[in-house]
C-alpha cells in the first residue's frame, strides 16, 4: 500500500471513470475503434491500479481470485454458447443470423455484441489472474530467500 495521499485520492477518484470507460469501449465496438480485447485490458488496468495503490488484500477482497478464474471460463462459455445456439437452430456455427431470423442484420448486431462481451470477460479475467499470480510469486520467492 502506497502511503502517498495524493496518489490514493486520485486513484479513488479516477477508478470509477476508468471502469466506465472500459465498459464504453466494450459496447461501442462497432461504432468506434476498440472492442472486447481492449475493453478487458482497460477493465483489468483499473483493478491493477487500485491494487497497486490501495494494497493487495483490498483488491483481492473486491474481486476474489476464484472469481477471476471463473470469469476466464465464463467468457469462453458465452462465446461457445452463441455459436452452438446457431448450430442447433439450423444455421452454421457462429452464424449470427440465427439470433433473429426475421432481421439478419439485427441478429448480426446482437451476435457481435455477445461475442465481444465474451472476449472482454475472458481477457479481463486472464489479465487480472496474471497480475495476482505475478504478485504472489514475487511474495513467495522473497520468503524463500
Amino acid at each position: 500500500m502506497i502511503q502517498a495521499l495524493v496518489l490514493k485520492v486520485i486513484t479513488k477518484l479516477m477508478v470509477g471513470f476508468i471502469i466506465l470507460f472500459a465498459l464504453y469501449v466494450q459496447f461501442h465496438g462497432d461504432y468506434s475503434p476498440g472492442g472486447g480485447f481492449q475493453a478487458g485490458v482497460i477493465f483489468a488496468a483499473a483493478f491493477i491500479l487500485y491494487g497497486m495503490v490501495m494494497g493487495l488484500q483490498n483488491v483481492e477482497r473486491v474481486l476474489p481470485p476464484w472469481l477471476t478464474h471463473k470469469l476466464m471460463a465464463l467468457g469462453v462459455i458465452i462465446y461457445t454458447l452463441v455459436g452452438i445456439y446457431s448450430f442447433f437452430v439450423g444455421y452454421n456455427f457462429l452464424d449470427y443470423g440465427a439470433l433473429s431470423p426475421a432481421h439478419p442484420e439485427h441478429g448480426q448486431h446482437y451476435g457481435i455484441l455477445l461475442v465481444e462481451f465474451g472476449v472482454g470477460v475472458t481477457v479481463a479475467g486472464v489479465v487480472i489472474s496474471i497480475y495476482y499470480a505475478f504478485v504472489n510469486r514475487s511474495k513467495t520467492s522473497k520468503e524463500d530467500e
Binding site: 479513488k12 477508478v15 471502469i19 490501495m54 483490498n58
Partner: peptide, 17 residues
C-alpha cells in the same frame, strides 16, 4: 455496475473521499 464496484471498494478499504 460501475457504482456497484466503487461502493464495494469504498466499503472494503474504509476510505471515502
Amino acid at each position: 455496475l460501475t457504482i456497484y464496484f466503487v461502493r464495494r471498494m469504498d466499503k472494503i478499504d474504509g476510505y471515502t473521499i
